Amino acid sequence: MPVRRGHVAPQNTFLDTIIRKFEGQSRKFIIANARVENCAVIYCNDGFCELCGYSRAEVMQRPCTCDFLHGPRTQRRAAAQIAQALLGAEERKVEIAFYRKDGSCFLCLVDVVPVKNEDGAVIMFILNFEVVMEKDMVGSPAHDTNHRGPPTSWLAPGRAKTFRLKLPALLALTARESSVRSGGAGGAGAPGAVVVDVDLTPAAPSSESLALDEVTAMDNHVAGLGPAEERRALVGPGSPPRSAPGQLPSPRAHSLNPDASGSSCSLARTRSRESCASVRRASSADDIEAMRAGVLPPPPRHASTGAMHPLRSGLLNSTSDSDLVRYRTISKIPQITLNFVDLKGDPFLASPTSDREIIAPKIKERTHNVTEKVTQVLSLGADVLPEYKLQAPRIHRWTILHYSPFKAVWDWLILLLVIYTAVFTPYSAAFLLKETEEGPPATECGYACQPLAVVDLIVDIMFIVDILINFRTTYVNANEEVVSHPGRIAVHYFKGWFLIDMVAAIPFDLLI
């Protein structure tokens, strides 16, 4: 008679799926529990143990900040960024110097990925580790590398530091407007667009060049630039800015003055950032001319202004700041037409079709709590990747769950009947059967004279019903998954307890 339990259901295979997918890609990662103190490590794979030199037993239950890997060259700011990422709910990448158990130093890129439950609360953290440099290539500990984003994938490793954006290309926007319009339909740009040429040739750093990471940081200074100062900065030398009595002219307006920039070969870094931020506020060169004239017309309804409409929906549905990093990277690809469009465009503009998908598509409701890094690593669709929660398995109709209350009560009843059979069957065979043979035949009273025979008949009927119930009862397979398919249940029961239950259900007393 089957006594099969499996009270692990309803099970959740999400954690096993993450481990299996990460292991298949030869990654070095740990999984931490966000619900406990210090976000203790609950799993670390073999790749991480080989990377740091510690065994799994030495890593388990330690804080996922990996303070046991810190050393003299470990930056405090990087460690603080990892700790801050564990307090938030967004994906974050941090470069930090770690030390192995043998004392060797290596520069590592740590990717902190939160995993949320159905309520939107962070319950786990996945920390992925990628070695960037070994100890002989690690720089000085005073050099802070965590304020910069990861290198873009479309640049060669040897040319990542030679990417320079020439400031004269930004200063000569109005001069290039006529050349853009003359391109017409034969050019790649839309009317009114501004073409910015980027020099990728390796050259020595000069005062006129600005690194790509500095251009990325310009967006942080746009908020500090007032509207009046932006307007004066875009007017140009024809209309000098008016300053109040006793007030000095704005240095932001002076930063885009061609006369002032041409007199000296070098520009201050602050002026460069502010000038680029001011130019980015204009949607095209037409807006710059309109600002000089004193009238700013409404933005025209053409394809170039609607190019950012799908980007707005993608940004609203993005799951991490990696989408913004990807957008900034692609927006700086050289030799393309940049349409400086305000994100607050007309909502009635139709979304044009684009061959290049900048932001990841909208994630469906079932995966809105899973970050983009987890979705990318697992390579699963929205119909396959579940949320991290207890999910009731989908069972067929008329199927009994093996952990249901009805099955528990039924098993206790069958257990009592088995005990009765084990006690009274030998007793009936030894004593009652002998008395029946010696006594007179009682054929007239039937079952009324033999109450134990009636009980034995009921017990046999219950055993037959138990066999039928076992054909529709779920079970737990070797992978700790609840199986509810009727065919698989029948095959599993035939290979197991079916023969024993059938022999126990045969009414031998009635056959004798």
Rank of each mutant, 00 (worst) to 15 (best):
I288A: 14
D67Q: 15
Y43G: 01
I363Q: 14
P241K: 07
L315E: 15
P386R: 01
K116F: 12
A268C: 05
P237S: 15
R76A: 14
S272K: 12
H70E: 01
I31A: 01
E130G: 11
A169S: 12
S322F: 12
A282F: 08
D287K: 13
T145S: 15
T319W: 03
E95K: 12
A223Q: 05
G306P: 14
G183S: 05
G24S: 13
G139D: 09
T305H: 12
M137P: 07
V110F: 01
P141R: 11
P150F: 06
K161I: 01
A217C: 15
A190P: 07
T353D: 13
I333Q: 15
R281P: 06
Y99L: 01
V131T: 15
S178W: 03
R73N: 09
L311V: 12
P72S: 05
G6I: 07
C276D: 14
E130P: 01
Q376L: 03
T319Q: 05
L127D: 01
P352I: 06
N12T: 11
D67I: 13
P72V: 05
I82M: 08
S264P: 04
L380K: 04
P2M: 04
S178L: 04
P141L: 15
I96V: 11
A121Y: 10
K344I: 04
E177A: 08
A217F: 14
I123H: 09
A382P: 14
K28L: 04
L248C: 15
R252L: 05
V198P: 01
A78G: 09
E214D: 13
E208F: 04
T371P: 04
V59I: 11
N33F: 01
L171A: 14
Q81Y: 08
R242D: 04
N339T: 03
L171D: 13
L51G: 01
Q247P: 15
W154R: 05
S182R: 14
P334C: 01
E134V: 06
Q81C: 06
I19H: 01
E90K: 08
L170Q: 12
A156W: 15
G238T: 03
P310R: 07
A253F: 13
D286G: 07
R273Y: 12
E372M: 11
E37G: 14
F98L: 09
G381W: 11
D119Q: 15
L324R: 11
V198D: 03
G226I: 15
R356A: 05
A79R: 10
G189P: 15
C108S: 08
L86T: 10
M133S: 12
H302A: 08
R366Q: 06
F163L: 06
Q247G: 12
T152L: 06
A34Q: 05
L380T: 04
R280N: 05
P205N: 14
A193G: 05
H302G: 14
V374A: 06
P2A: 05
R273L: 11
A169F: 06
L256D: 06
P141W: 06
E372I: 04
L248Q: 15
E208M: 04
K101M: 01
A223R: 14
D259E: 14
L170K: 11
T270K: 04
N339A: 05
G306N: 05
A268S: 08
V113H: 13
V138S: 13
Y43S: 01
R176E: 06
A9R: 14
G158T: 06
Y54C: 01
S275A: 07
V377K: 03
K21E: 13
A285S: 04
S255N: 10
A79M: 06
L170E: 08
T216F: 06
T319K: 07
Q81W: 05
N257P: 07
T174K: 14
D197W: 01
P141C: 08
R148N: 14
L165M: 06
R77I: 15
R252Q: 08
L296W: 14
F129W: 01
L107W: 08
A360T: 12
A156P: 11
G139R: 14
L385W: 07
D16S: 15
Q247F: 15
N128V: 15
P63F: 01
T329M: 03
F48G: 01
V115H: 13
N33K: 04
S179E: 06
Q61F: 10
P352W: 11
I82S: 01
S331T: 14
R100N: 04
A40I: 06
N117A: 14
S284I: 12
N339Q: 06
G120S: 07
D259N: 10
K166V: 01
N220R: 07
T367Q: 09
R280A: 14
A253K: 15
F125W: 10
R328E: 15
V8P: 07
A175S: 14
V112S: 01
A290Y: 04
R77A: 13
P202I: 01
E90R: 13
I330D: 05
G345H: 11
S320F: 12
A350T: 07
E90S: 09
F340N: 15
E230H: 03
G149M: 06
Q335G: 14
L210N: 06
E50C: 06
V279P: 06
I19Q: 03
E230F: 06
N128K: 10
I82E: 01
H254Y: 13
L225Y: 03
G238Q: 07
P352A: 12
R159K: 14
L316M: 08
P114M: 01
L349M: 14
A172R: 13
R356K: 15
A188G: 06
D342T: 03
S320T: 11
V377C: 06
K135N: 10
G6Y: 14
R280L: 10
M308H: 05
D119C: 06
L86Q: 01
S179F: 15
T65P: 01
G149N: 07
L385T: 11
L378V: 03
P245M: 14
N369E: 06
L69A: 01
R269G: 12
A78P: 05
E37N: 11
S351I: 14
C276R: 07
G226Y: 06
I19V: 08
S255Q: 12
V41M: 06
R273N: 07
L51W: 04
N38P: 14
R100D: 01
T375F: 14
G88H: 08
L343F: 13
L296C: 07
H368M: 10
S320I: 14
R366C: 04
P352T: 03
H7D: 15
M124A: 12
R62L: 10
R77C: 06
D323Q: 08
M60L: 14
A285C: 15
L200E: 10
R20P: 01
V36R: 07
E23H: 03
T367W: 15
P2K: 06
Q25E: 14
K135F: 06
E208I: 05
V59S: 01
L324F: 14
D213P: 07
P168N: 05
V295R: 09
F14S: 07
M291Y: 05
R292Q: 14
S243A: 10
A244W: 12
F22W: 13
S207N: 06
L155N: 15
N45A: 06
R5P: 05
G187Q: 15
R281F: 10
Y43R: 01
V59A: 01
L200S: 14
I42P: 01
C105I: 10
K362N: 07
E365H: 08
C49T: 11
D144F: 10
R5V: 09
C265D: 15
G53D: 01
Y99W: 01
T353R: 14
I123L: 13
E58G: 01
H302I: 09
A79E: 03
L173Q: 13
A185I: 06
A282I: 11
E37T: 14
R328H: 12
M218G: 10
Q25K: 10
P241T: 13
A350Q: 07
T353P: 15
V325K: 12
T13K: 06
K364S: 11
V295S: 12
R159P: 06
A79V: 13
